[in-house]
Nucleic acid binder design. Structure first.
Ligand SMILES: [Zn+2]
Ligand SMILES: [Zn+2]
Ligand SMILES: [Zn+2]
Ligand SMILES: [Zn+2]
Lengths: 152, 152
DNA sequence: TCAGTAAATGCAACTGAGTTGCAAATCCAT
DNA sequence: ATGGATTTGCAACTCAGTTGCATTTACTGA
């Protein structure tokens, strides 16, 4: 396991190295996409920290800046490492309106909005909606074919 | 009251003209900023429709496109008329990190993200964070002065 | 004008993500 | 090792939003 990386990060931001923090941070490091509390708990299985602890750990990690709240979907927050975002702007997140999957768009960049009228814009967050490659293909190529069950 | 406008809109989108729909839509028309269910209920006072009805009416109005869900704050959805948004992009919403107020930035425009790798981007939503004129002034002009209680 | 019917409403009970208070456990500096 | 501050777990709570169902209301067309 990549526990090393997690422990290293915790030391960097001067957070106490508890088993729970290491495990949760490791889960975030290993995640291929943003995850919510339930997914973290599930990925840690039987030895997962309590739900409340997960929220509290996420909160402390967010305070240090090593974790971001990526987006909210269905009233539920998703978290990810913040290591490849600038302070001003993270990558956009894309949700497919057909298959409902959400993913990071690390290759998409947008300019920052221009501050105006005394507003100081410090952070910008972009959400995208549309059709993912799977689903746009399905719509193009056939009639009445829904969601990504095209070629699987 | 501007009930006329609401009734007109309902006719346009072919929704039955119920007292509740007219009232809720009128509340949205009169609102100076996006509002949530509780605020709609409050603004309609004693004669307000039931909470469930408000959610169901909002849902039907959103389906027709005359109302949009503007943003979510503190796990709570805020709604507004969608009449001055393009299909692809609404105006950004700005939340002040100091006084927590959120407002529409109708004068701010951002280009649409470029679709890539088979992704078809149909809609883009932008959230901005920073300091509002009140609060940025407070930070500049003095020491330790919090939130918009500066002048007035 | 007056049924008849589909749609809309209200109520009560529910759901589920996230929070709070507090006692017990754990980390870490000395 | 020891002690005090921090962290954790549990149970109970909060509150926006949803669901099922009985009742009411808006429209159609005779
Ligand atoms: Zn898809
Ligand atoms: Zn991401
Ligand atoms: Zn402010
Ligand atoms: Zn707006």
């Amino acid at each position: 396991m990549t526990t090393d990386k997690a422990e290293e990060l915790l030391a960097e931001v001067k957070l106490r190295r508890t088993r729970q923090r290491v495990d949760i941070l490791t889960a975030l490091i290993n995640a291929k996409a943003p995850v919510n509390q339930a997914q973290i708990m599930e990925s840690l299985g039987k030895s997962s920290p309590n739900k409340v602890t997960i929220y509290r750990v996420l909160e402390s990690l967010i305070e240090t800046g090593i974790v971001h709240q990526a987006y909210i979907q269905d009233r539920c927050a998703y978290y990810e490492l913040g290591h490849n975002c600038t302070a001003q702007q993270c990558h956009p997140h894309f949700t497919c309106i057909s298959c409902k999957e959400t993913r990071c768009m690390k290759d998409v960049e947008l300019p920052m909005a221009k501050s105006s009228d005394g507003f100081v814009i410090k952070h910008q967050q972009v959400r995208l909606e549309g059709l993912c490659p799977n689903c746009s293909q399905a719509v193009e190529g056939s009639t009445g074919n829904q969601a990504g069950t095209t070629n699987g």
